[in-house]
Every structure is written in structure tokens, then in C-alpha cells.
């Protein structure tokens, strides 16, 4: 699925932190997000924007967890993306 880039937003500070802390480029996070067919709701008190977790894979094959906010109108904002750590989390990725 290829979408206009303006539908997926990543704040500059988040873009920088994802790269520094998780070695995840924003392009990879977007690819991972778009590779997920289903996403799961994350319970959050933040009003107006629901949160979801996408388990996906960018083109390089890495498995990534992507937490994102539904900004409405078909737009989303990536909150963070990282490689799942630990045997259980990796197993959940394979199962999904």
C-alpha cells in the first residue's frame, strides 16, 4: 500500500529520538506501519486521538513495533517505533 506522505506524520523530535535510541529511520517506521494488516488498540487517557500498536516489517525485514495515534481524517502520527526485545515479544511478532 502506497499512500501520500502527508497521511503519516512524525514529529521532528520523535524522528530524531527513534534514530538515536532505536536506530529506526522514520521511513522504516512508516513501512512497518503500512505492512501491518491489523492493528491493536492501546488504552490511553489522551482524549481525541486513539492509540494503536502495529506489528510490522519494513523492507529490510526487521520486525518493528510501531505505536501511533489516529489523528482523524485518515491521518496518523507515529509516536514511537522500536524492535521488540525479548523472546516472548519476538514470538508474538512471528505469530501475528
Amino acid at each position: 500500500m502506497r499512500l501520500p506522505p502527508h497521511l503519516i506524520h512524525v514529529a521532528p523530535s520523535v524522528r530524531e529520538k527513534m534514530l538515536l535510541k532505536h536506530a529506526v529511520e522514520s521511513d522504516e517506521a512508516e513501512e512497518a506501519l503500512l505492512s501491518a494488516r491489523e492493528v491493536e488498540r492501546v488504552a490511553s487517557k489522551t482524549a481525541g486521538e486513539r492509540r494503536y500498536l502495529a506489528r510490522g516489517q519494513p523492507a529490510d525485514g526487521r520486525r518493528l513495533n510501531v505505536v501511533f495515534a489516529d489523528a482523524g481524517g485518515g491521518e496518523v502520527r507515529i509516536v514511537t517505533a522500536y524492535e521488540p526485545t525479548g523472546r516472548k515479544q519476538r514470538h508474538r511478532h512471528r505469530r501475528d
Binding site: M1, L3, P4, L7, I8, K21, L33, L34, A36, R37, E38, V39, E40, R41, V42, A43, S44, Y52, L53, A54, N65, V67, D70, G74, E75, V76, V79, T80, Y82, Q89, R92
Partner: peptide, 22 residues
């Protein structure tokens, strides 16, 4: 999310990505 496991916060509600984005 650096210090909290997102798995602990999942509601179990799954939706198609296509119903949200684009």
C-alpha cells in the same frame, strides 16, 4: 513508551489498518 511495555496496555480490540489510515 521507553519505560513501559505497550503489551500491558492493549485492549484486545483489533481493527484493520485500512479503516484508520488513508
Amino acid at each position: 513508551w521507553e519505560t513501559h511495555d505497550v503489551e500491558d496496555y492493549l485492549t484486545g480490540e483489533k481493527v484493520p489498518l485500512s479503516s484508520i489510515i488513508g
